Amino acid sequence: MTIRKTTAMIAAITMLTVGACSKKAPETLPPAPEGTDTGTGTGTDPNAVVPGSQQDFIANVASDRIFFGFDQYNVDAEDMATLQSQAQWLQRNPAVRVTIEGHADERGTRDYNIALGERRANAAKNYLASLGIDPSRMNVISYGKERPAELGSNEEAWAKNRRAVTVVIGR
């Protein structure tokens, strides 16, 4: 056999094999598992916000984040108002746990910014605890400068990156 005939034969066999293995979509789908919203109007609105979720949190608090000055981790009056709003939501949702993420801008060493982010997250946690939120419901993590909210090397970007963010992690 020539190389051309062998190549053609291999191509034909490959097409037959692929064609034989392709699956045809079923005409009817199996029933949905028990308790699943099938979208037929018998369940809840698929766009509805689930109580106690991150979406519910964001929709019902002043903000999920507070901001800090350069090299600062103190909670100012504006931050207090935001955290009071978060505390009220957390009191209405006592089974919810949160993680408070601490962040820093790009200036400074990685180690310094990790420590600063942790101080910022702990400042938010401590203020929420002072408002009656059980500290065992709150975890703290610092990302330092590793997860910027805003890219850029200017004061506007840096100001948005010096923050503590409250994230709902579940019940």
Rank of each mutant, 00 (worst) to 15 (best):
V61A: 09
P46L: 03
T99P: 01
R147M: 08
P94D: 12
S130L: 04
A115G: 13
V18E: 06
F67K: 06
A77W: 05
A115Y: 08
T2Q: 08
K24C: 08
K160C: 04
G39P: 04
T2W: 04
R120T: 00
R163I: 08
T14D: 11
T40Q: 10
A104Q: 03
D111C: 03
R147Y: 10
R120G: 01
D76H: 15
F70Y: 15
I133E: 02
Q86L: 04
M1R: 12
I3C: 09
S142E: 01
N139E: 14
M138A: 00
E27C: 04
K23P: 02
L116P: 00
A115K: 08
R137D: 02
A121C: 02
T82P: 03
G152Q: 00
T44I: 12
N93I: 06
L116W: 00
I10R: 13
P135L: 11
T38G: 09
M1F: 09
A77N: 13
Q72T: 14
R147F: 12
A12S: 11
R4S: 13
D134G: 00
A20T: 08
A129V: 09
Q84L: 07
S63Y: 05
R120A: 01
W158D: 15
T36C: 06
M1A: 07
A87F: 04
V140R: 09
V98K: 07
